[in-house]
Deep mutational scan, measured.
Amino acid sequence: MTEYKLVVVGAGGVGKSALTIQLIQNHFVDEYDPTIEDSYRKQVVIDGETCLLDILDTAGQEEYSAMRDQYMRTGEGFLCVFAINNTKSFEDIHHYREQIKRVKDSEDVPMVLVGNKCDLPSRTVDTKQAQDLARSYGIPFIETSAKTRQGVDDAFYTLVREIRKHKEKMSKDGKKKKKKSKTKCVIM
């Protein structure tokens, strides 16, 4: 069974824990209790493949930012979460993405942009803004509501699919490099 290491990042209060708990335990946590770091595991079937999701729910508070490099190193894919009623959390996505790329030393890291709290009427981040940002990053965008469960499975499952595509691409690139290195030079 394939294991996928997913990391949920975003500013404090955007609903990272609520999304994760909704996926794992099928219930909505409405009281806000700032996370330092929590880890969850769940076995699911995605596109006919049974897999184990190892999900790291991270601290959004700035005082825990020193811990970010460590979990970013171990993560295979990242859910970059903002709240649709919090423009600052949307603007912060850029910083999370840049930090992930720096730590992973790669421009090509599996990510999904997630606009959470889409059940709320007080939207300050337009869907088109988020779609445009995701398009500019070359990553999928999904709106979710941890409260109603809308888009929750889709967000995590899409990230797994992005990781699969990335692994497939990397193995193809690896095979191309191996083929090239088999060419021999004969000096007579």
Rank of each mutant, 00 (worst) to 15 (best):
D69I: 03
Q22D: 15
R41C: 05
N86R: 06
Q61D: 13
R135C: 11
A18E: 00
A66M: 13
V44D: 07
G75R: 03
D38Y: 00
L56A: 08
D153Q: 09
N26M: 06
V45R: 12
T127I: 07
G151N: 13
V45P: 09
L6T: 07
K101N: 06
D69N: 10
A83R: 06
V125A: 09
K167L: 06
I21W: 04
F141L: 09
K172N: 08
I163N: 08
A66F: 12
R68W: 05
I46M: 12
S89Y: 02
Y71K: 02
K182M: 04
T2L: 09
T144V: 12
R97F: 15
Q70G: 09
Q70P: 12
L56F: 04
F28V: 01
L133A: 05
Y96L: 15
K172I: 11
F28G: 00
G77W: 04
Y4T: 14
K184G: 07
C80I: 14
A130Q: 11
C185E: 15
G15Q: 01
M72K: 03
V125P: 07
V103W: 15
V29M: 11
K165Q: 04
L6W: 11
E91D: 08
K184Y: 02
V114D: 00
Q22E: 09
I24G: 15
R97M: 15
G77T: 11
L52N: 14
S39C: 09
E3T: 04
C118Y: 10
R164V: 06
L113V: 12
K5G: 07
F82A: 11
K88T: 14
A59W: 00
E3S: 02
L23I: 10
Y4W: 04
D153T: 07
T158I: 10
G75Q: 08
L56D: 15
I46Q: 15
E63F: 02
S65H: 06
L79S: 00
R161H: 02
V81H: 14
G138F: 06
R164T: 15
Q131L: 06
D92F: 11
I100P: 03
L6Y: 07
V152F: 12
T127F: 05
E76C: 12
T2K: 11
K175E: 14
G151E: 07
K104T: 15
T58Y: 01
Q22T: 12
L159C: 08
